[in-house]
Structure formats: structure tokens, C-alpha cells
Amino acid sequence: MVGDVFVAPLEVAYPYKRTVGTLLSRFFTSLSECRLEGTRGSDGRVYFPPAEFDPVTGAQLTEWVSLSDTGTVSTWAWQSTPVEGQPLSHPFAWALITIDGADVPMLHAVDAGSLENIAIGTKVKVRWAQDRPGGVTDIACFDVVGGVS
């Protein structure tokens, strides 16, 4: 008897907000304003995304560096069958990208169209997301500079 069955909704959620701290707050704000900012490490190398603490020495990093929205692919892999929630729903390249002015590469997606259009050394440029709430996905993906041939 369906009418006798007790049904209660179950919504899995974290019903609280949290602060992301000083470094990520500044970083996410800059992304929502279409700007790229990194931090300089103890050895002078520039990290993008910014590092709060030096990965080698553990020192707190406080020097910010403004960067351009272009970069270079240092390694890549071809996602021929994207999974829901990934940056693109059609085949794309994952890449480690060193932003011009930075020294340490970041992970993101490149909308290369076909794997013939990407290689180590390929120049890429940020494609900003329409909706930018502040986060790494404010960068929708990267485009190959000069367009996809």
C-alpha cells in the first residue's frame, strides 16, 4: 500500500559556508575579474596558480606577480571521451601550462579540436567563462593561439 510508505527526501549537502583564506580569496577575486596573478617562491620561481607556502622550503609566500593570459604547453594528454563535469564535453587535451611570466605549470584543458593541433611548446590563451563566481573554473579552458587549423 503506497499510501502507508513513509517517504522523506534525502539531500546530501554541506549547509555551511567557509572562508578560503587570504591567498585564495585574492586569487579567486582576480580570476573573477579576468586577471591572472601568481606568487614568487623562495627560489625566485613564480607559481601560477599562486602557492601560499613554498613547496620546497615551506616558507610563506607574499610577493604577488601579475601575469599575462597566455602560456605554453609543457605536457599534454588527449581525453577522447570526456566525463561529465570536465571543462569540455567534446574531445579535448589535458595539459600542464606554464603561464607567460610564471615558471611552474598548472593543469587545465585545451580546446584543441584535434590532437594534431597540440604539442609540447604549443602556445595557448585563456578563454574566460561567462559566469565567474571565483575559482579555477572561471577559466573555461585554453585556446590554441592562432586558432585551430
Binding site: V20, P49, T75, W76, V83, Q86, L107, V136
Partner: peptide, 16 residues
């Protein structure tokens, strides 16, 4: 914050 929101699989990271 920097990696998980992009949802790369472990295979993709290994492929890089």
C-alpha cells in the same frame, strides 16, 4: 581548489 574542480581522472594525470 586548483585541480579537483576540473575533474581530471587519475588516468589523465598519469598520461600527462
Amino acid at each position: 581548489y586548483m585541480v579537483a574542480p576540473l575533474k581530471p581522472g587519475f588516468d589523465a594525470l598519469a598520461a600527462l
